[in-house]
Amino acid sequence: MTADSDTAVAAAPRPRLLPFAWDRVALPGFILLMGLVFGSLNPNFFSWTNLTNVARQSSVLALLSIGQTFAIVSGGIDLSVGSLLAVVSVLGSMQLVAFGLVPGVVGGILAATLAGAVSGLLIARTRIPPFIVTLGMLSLARGTAFTVTGGMPVVGLPTEIQWIGAGSLGPLPVPGVIAAVAFVGAHWLLRRTSFGRYVYAMGGNEAAAIAAGINVRWHKFFVYCLSGFCAGVAGIVITSRTLSGQPTVGETLELYAIAAVVIGGTRLGGGDGSLIRTLFGVIVIAVLGNGLNLINVSSYIQLIVIGAIIIVAVGFDLWRRERRA
């Protein structure tokens, strides 16, 4: 017993919150399978140009999914992130036009973070559920984006902003690098800091978190600030790619962010999940969209396929959990 314990201490220094089976084997396996199928149907799938394209296109979804993971693991949800993209796109663009590159980027990110802070304050301070608060914010933010622009796109942005969405760092696409850095940082935050631990605790058993003396209100507030911040960065990426402020941008993207999280195997109830799982969820959605495009499947059919995959993935995950329990 004692010897076993010593071995366990030496061999398992890393925190393991759940035994991984699904996100270690099944989901990467599925991604690999998709790659093989798409690659054999269209050899261009594996070209560097296409793969960097996938990274560029999925970086916005990836950034939104990071914030969504924190919200869902904490026992909540953030429905507002798609609309926050429009706020950043519109307000960021106006500031880019008026004040230049750095004020525009900072101002855009700040706008989304503030919107997240408003949601966070309401969720932390009132008993209104996160679903309702962020549903309200979804409409509020979209409406604000339309109102300040009168429904028209904002144009005349400084062209240097394009580097963020279209530029390259060596062989790597800039938005892909941004998303990757964000994933690494967020993973560290969720798994290696007290804040991350409290995110799990709040979602897993809020009463226990309070009993343990954790400032649940403050940490909930911070979760939605973080989700807003992620939407802010994503909004800058999308603004750079469109080189304009679009009040319609990002519609229904919040649903894909939620889909990426749950396809990854994170439970909607909270207390459980990881950014590695979310990354796999994002890759599934990204590769599926790209691969179906390459083999000329219409975007209408793509919607059907993604819908089916969400249901099958969560169903499989539930079946796996029940079998283990």
Partner: peptide, 17 residues
Amino acid sequence: ALVPSLDVVANVFLGRE
């Protein structure tokens, strides 16, 4: 007052990591 999804270590040290 345990968090079911967290491991033993996390539960023992919850709130004073």
